[in-house]
Design a binder for these strands. Structure first.
Lengths: 101, 101
DNA sequence: ATTGCTTATCGCAAATTTACGATTGGCTTT
DNA sequence: AAAGCCAATCGTAAATTTGCGATAAGCAAT
């Protein structure tokens, strides 16, 4: 990306909010989260049936959401049950809330 | 991006929310918007002094924010005054609000 | 008409994202 | 030990994003 000037340092909240926003920056991920809000939880396979996307693609989106901390996976062999990470969800909620006033 | 399956159609709100989220998905853009919230308005040049980024880079971020509808520019020759687009700001606010419940 | 100031746009390079199919890995059950 | 399921990861390709410097464009004042 060719950064010649020194790296910028942002406020912690700014960075965190940007991270959450990035996780929400794709319609599929929004849709997945909406699905999780309704169902409260679901398996990867369920989503593959809901969305016309390859299993690997769904898995990648889940990885993104997990990286942002918005969801968490629980081993339920042979499946994996994904749920919303309530703590971080509330964190995101309040960050967006206070950002928009 | 290699889409073999038919293009997905998302709910309108899902797409719009993702667009807003994408605009917020970079710390610099969050910081610009925070700046605009405080100052209510500002010129491109102001931001160039605030952030250690090239003028062209700032301009690009402003373009992104404008594309998402979160800000609007007003000609104030020889400068351009950027303000928050209140209507869309409220739209975004309510979309995030209802998304997080 | 020329100069000066401010901002947008162009051209490029590197990094990241999104998507797919194919393969691997983990855990049960046989 | 082998077979079966489900989900993650790998490898690849195309598109998009982010950043810069350089150049162009718009408008005011000289």
């Amino acid at each position: 990306m060719k950064r010649t000037i020194e790296t910028i340092t942002y406020q912690q909240n700014t960075k965190v909010l940007a991270t959450f926003a990035k996780a929400l920056a794709h319609p599929t991920r929004i849709a997945i989260l909406k699905h999780l809000e309704n169902q409260s939880c679901c398996f990867t396979g369920d989503l593959v049936n809901v969305f016309p996307l390859a299993q690997s693609t769904i898995s990648q989106h889940l990885k993104e959401l997990k990286k942002a901390g918005l969801i968490q996976g629980e081993l339920k062999p042979p499946k994996i049950k994904y749920c919303i990470n309530t703590e971080n969800w509330e964190k995101a909620k309040s960050l967006f809330q206070q950002f928009f006033d």
